[in-house]
Design a protein around this nucleic acid. Structure first.
Lengths: 155, 155
DNA sequence: CTACCTGCAAACGTTTTGCAGCTTC
DNA sequence: GAAGCTGCAAAACGTTTGCAGGTAG
């Protein structure tokens, strides 16, 4: 077992369990894609970025398989799917007990993560008061850096 | 001035101001699209629904113009663009001082609106503590009706 | 040997764009 | 009459799917 596999033991366990439960196969492509995903610096990746990361490891996997595997990982609860501003889907490892929300800079697009228990509690309360049981939520803050010009700006 | 135009005076003022400020033209299509948007029962519409509403008024406007006008209305601060679960863009009138967030039923897709000052205040605090000035936010709760089966379910 | 999986290319649904003609100012 | 605007059709975009061949269990 490689180092990165050790760091993410929960992930491989979860994947194995999901595959077994649904009578799906362990394939090299799936392992390679997960390894590429783990090794990426960026936490928020889209299918194309992941495809490139896989290629950079010298592997040749079709984009369709990337999409199919990301869908599988989402169903298995291993990644979360988001969307932010543009149309494309963004995926992120769903590390157990590490829920967080996102603040996105409207100048440079940088994504900061934060946690706030108070807001989480209020969300539960709101859903209940409307007669619903909360399943998940999406909270994104769009904001501008207080220092001008934005120090993260690239363009 | 029609009744619906009276009800939405702020909107026409805002549109006129935006058009003037950017040296853009007043056209029948733009007025017709805004009127169709105002007259719709559904608060959350996509481009196709709006296109159909326009057609139902006996008007013949191209889908491309619907998209272009919705983009203009967004830039003018007259509508807000969202996305919810599926890929398509959803638009909603951005009524001044009537901000709200959304709870979406994961069974039937019905959208409930809610407001919560406490959460809004916490968001401001969080953005500031991260060194940002909050511009806008998106909060969506995905939840399941407490009564089974979901009374809103259509399928 | 029976699912299941993959790569490829084609299809998909939504949104954008190039262009020729028309409208607004 | 110059600058915008529109409709149309075609293109673009990210994503999904059908299929023929390959692979895991």
């Amino acid at each position: 077992m490689s180092l990165s596999q050790m760091d993410h033991g929960w992930l491989w366990d979860k994947l194995d369990a999901y595959l077994a439960r649904h009578s799906l196969r362990q394939t090299n492509q799936r392992k390679d894609i997960v390894n590429a995903l783990i090794s990426m610096r960026e936490k928020h990746v889209d299918a194309e970025k992941l495809h490139n990361a896989v290629k950079d490891l010298g592997l040749d996997i079709g984009l369709a398989t990337i999409y199919r595997t990301l869908g599988l990982l989402r169903e298995a609860g291993i990644v979360e799917q988001r969307s932010f501003t543009d149309g494309r889907a963004i995926f992120e490892l769903a590390i157990p007990d590490e829920h967080h929300d996102h603040l996105i800079c409207i100048d440079c697009g940088i994504v900061k993560e934060f946690e706030n228990e108070e807001i989480e509690a209020l969300q539960l309360k709101i859903a209940n008061s409307l007669g619903f049981s909360l399943s998940s939520h999406k909270l994104e803050l769009y904001a501008r850096c207080l220092r001008e010009p934005c120090p993260n700006r690239v363009r």
